[in-house]
Nucleic acid binder design. Structure first.
Lengths: 386, 386
DNA sequence: GATATTTTTCTTGTTTTGAGAATAATTCAT
DNA sequence: ATGAATTATTCTCAAAACAAGAAAAATATC
């Protein structure tokens, strides 16, 4: 526990407050974070000198006394680029320091490891120039479908077939800006904390559904990584003893009932008409296809059972469901609520809100932005989110 | 995040190292904690001046150079008293600062709230005088079967029928020593971390079985309390959808299959012979009563299912099972292992060790000692473990 | 006995917090 | 208008804590 750690921590907390509540006063920051006024003044000055934070005069409040200074993140001060590497695509988004996306794009990707650093370097350069700003790139955050060590080594990414890749070093040498890397599920959770539905919630459970089901435990204001970094792989909670086989090799995983391929397969099996995308699944449900609605309802029940377990373990104020789940809310929510009623401890579930977040569909790839922002605003050196 | 917090944190870490590894050198502490040598020297001096730590010459190592000083907790420096309040008993244990119990006793208790402060004050005085040492009582830790707030208020203790009791204030005014209070399950987990099977393990899951099933999440070197303090009530993880009714009002809880009353009832129902204690259950199992063995095996399967979920969520290096479970290890372990094999993610379960801890049966009431020790050795003011 | 080695302490410097005084900028009352 | 009151921020200074290196202490080896 070092001294600079406190500074890092405080700086992050202050930046976070300014971002989620533009035009706050220093006084408010003091009240809400408990950090001393001198420290807030000093750190705000530091941010202000770096050009990261602006002081704006605020409309008169009709109160006596010196008016407050409204503090905001300067949108022109620099760009953060979020990169999301998936099985066959790479997504990019450039955002200002306040996290508001400026532009984004997706590019096809063949998964070749030896070219990816150059591909991403070019992609980042392009997205930055497309923004039409000559502001500096302050950080690049790379969200990866696999597990990372503290040192920035990607241990294993099944969908990419990569293993033991020192991603931070690799991308750092190809890019000019500081590189931050992290697991996709955890990065997405961080994005929810910074920009989404979980802003400023100290404890929440995040579940994400797509080609697989991932997740993260956000505890005490930070992602819980566990001793091995594997913690939070919530897609593999067992929900049905001796249930369906999952791509991970085990059986009865939540993922085997909820991820897009599993739902598609089930619908295909029951109707003889295999959906080609999650969008199609939702379209068929919207068109009142009873089989599809039934499959989604069943998935909701299984999901609700998993959430009930999580509620009983963590008693979190918030459970956030992202990815494909957001667009399926009308078909999932009733079953989830039923399961919670039936399975979760009443005195716990009353304190828990379950929400479906649109963030990852409305503005995708923000996970990487969150990763980088977390590092950049600490007034400190890079790190990794395993 | 304040400055004195760092000192508290470092002091605790250093004391912890000395306790778990008597005769360490400062150099070793530096190597193992990462704290700077100056800081270690300064804090060791502080402990030494307070008489909490002794410096012993260590047998020559046949190496050149100044020989190390072996640091140990001075056993005579003071007493810590652990108090455990249960439905009809109060248990006491007096221990030296190294956590080694000196003497203990149990007294009957009628659950009367208005007398308990005086009763405990008398009990503490007696146990201290029974020790036959005139050393100072440095702290009293009180372990309670209920939920506490950060401010030391017992919100609700169902088995005692207490609600909204400011326990820390109440016991503080009756006792001369600093009072620390906490939830029994979390205190027991802390004891495992300090004195038991989980010494120095930064992340573990603790499950405790007795008249109910409690537990704690020990994450990143500390108990996770969650936003409400309810986190870690692992006895109410749902293991069987629409399963047995639990004393909490819900159905399918782990507790409903594993706690002593549930096991006794089940055995009584099947044999017509209701066991009067957990000890009797084990005796009948030892006498090869097939029904009893079968009931325990079934409980083990349910327990294993719950542990599998926990493994998949946390991927902890260690799952520690305490209380009654320890003496039932021969009957529970096979079923637990089977369930883990079948239900837990293989790449996770290989990293997880499941152990049965005798700590709470061999030297009971250490939870309170752990609570108090945690506060006393921080060179800082009291606090609570909700 | 000199030298090398290992462990601990001392010295000095830097960073950061934290409390209170000072300053700045406004409204309200007269 | 002008002074008083009020509120927000900055400045000043002291204390706490860490951090790096020099120094000291205590031993083994040659």
């Amino acid at each position: 526990m070092s001294k600079s750690y406190i500074r890092h921590f405080n700086a992050n907390a202050i930046f976070h407050r300014i971002r989620i509540e533009p035009n706050v006063s220093q006084r408010d920051i003091v009240a809400k974070t408990g950090i001393d006024k001198s420290v807030v003044s000093s750190i705000v000055n530091q941010f202000s000198e770096l050009g990261l934070v602006e002081r704006n005069p605020v409309a008169t409040s009709n109160k006596p006394g010196r008016p407050m200074e409204g503090l905001t993140i300067s949108p022109e001060s620099g760009l953060i680029v979020g990169v999301q590497i998936e099985a066959d695509t790479i997504g990019y988004v450039a955002a200002a320091l306040d996290g508001i996306p400026v532009c984004s794009k997706v590019q096809a990707f063949d998964g070749k490891l030896d070219e990816v650093a150059d591909v991403v370097a070019r992609g980042v350069k392009e997205i930055v120039s497309e923004c039409g700003r000559d502001s500096e790139t302050l950080g690049v955050g790379i969200s990866l479908p696999g597990l990372l060590t503290d040192e920035g080594v990607l241990l294993h990414a099944p969908v990419l077939g990569w293993r033991g890749v020192p991603v931070v070093d690799m991308f750092s040498s190809a890019l000019d800006a500081p590189v931050f890397a992290g697991n996709d599920g955890k990065a997405a959770a961080m994005a929810e904390y910074m920009f989404g539905e979980c802003v400023d919630v100290r404890d929440f459970i995040y579940l994400f559904s797509g080609s697989g089901v991932g997740g993260a435990l956000f505890l005490d204001g930070d992602i819980y990584r566990g001793s091995t970094g594997l913690a939070g792989e919530l897609g593999h909670i067992k929900v049905v003893p001796q249930g369906r086989y999952c791509s991970c090799g085990a059986s009865g995983c939540l993922s085997a009932y909820l991820c897009e391929p599993a739902l598609a397969e089930e619908i295909g099996r029951l109707t003889g008409n295999l959906p080609s995308s999650f969008k199609e699944i939702i379209e068929r449900a919207n068109a009142n296809d009873e089989v599809v609605v039934g499959v989604l309802d069943n998935a909701g029940a299984v999901l609700g059972s998993a959430i009930s377990s999580l509620v009983n373990i963590f008693n979190p104020p918030l459970v956030c469901l992202g990815g494909d789940m957001a667009s399926a809310e009308p078909y999932l929510r009733p079953a989830v609520e039923r399961a919670l009623q039936r399975l979760a401890h009443p005195s716990m579930s009353v304190q828990t809100k379950v929400i479906f977040s649109q963030l990852s569909t409305v503005s995708p790839f923000l996970g990487g932005v969150a990763l980088a922002l977390d590092g950049v605003t600490g007034l400190d050196s890079p790190h990794v989110l395993p």
